[in-house]
Structures are given as structure tokens and as C-alpha cells.
């Protein structure tokens, strides 16, 4: 039994739309960060550097 042509067409069409849905929350998050000027990844970097310094101290 083969996959029907119409079903295959819909699967491909919906898969392409899904790529945008997957990307949507990530894009929206960065858009909100861009608008608000919020940069949470810098806070994380600072924390990592502080941790490294602490580890290096005797």
C-alpha cells in the first residue's frame, strides 16, 4: 500500500509550516529581548567567569 499523492502533498506542506512554528518561540524571545534591551546571556557569562575565578583561587 502506497502513500497517496494528496496525503504526501499535505504532509510536505504542513511540515514546511511546522518549521516556522518550531522557530516561532525562539524568534519571539529574541525579538522581545531586542525590544526590551534585555540580555540574559551576559548575566550567565558573568556568572561563569565569576565561577572560574573562584575555582582558580587557592
Amino acid at each position: 500500500m502506497k502513500l497517496q499523492k494528496e496525503t504526501a502533498r499535505k504532509l510536505i506542506r504542513d511540515a514546511i509550516i511546522s518549521v516556522f512554528i518550531y522557530a516561532f518561540p525562539v524568534v519571539l524571545m529574541f525579538l522581545v529581548f531586542y525590544i526590551s534591551g534585555h540580555k540574559p546571556w551576559l548575566k550567565n557569562e558573568t556568572r561563569t567567569v565569576q565561577k572560574q575565578i573562584k575555582n582558580q583561587q587557592p
Partner: peptide, 11 residues
């Protein structure tokens, strides 16, 4: 790990 909780939840 820097991604705020609610954004991570949404993603």
C-alpha cells in the same frame, strides 16, 4: 541555561 524559565517552557 540563561534562557528565562517561561521562555524555556514555551520553547
Amino acid at each position: 541555561s540563561w534562557v528565562p524559565f517561561w521562555w524555556a517552557f514555551f520553547i
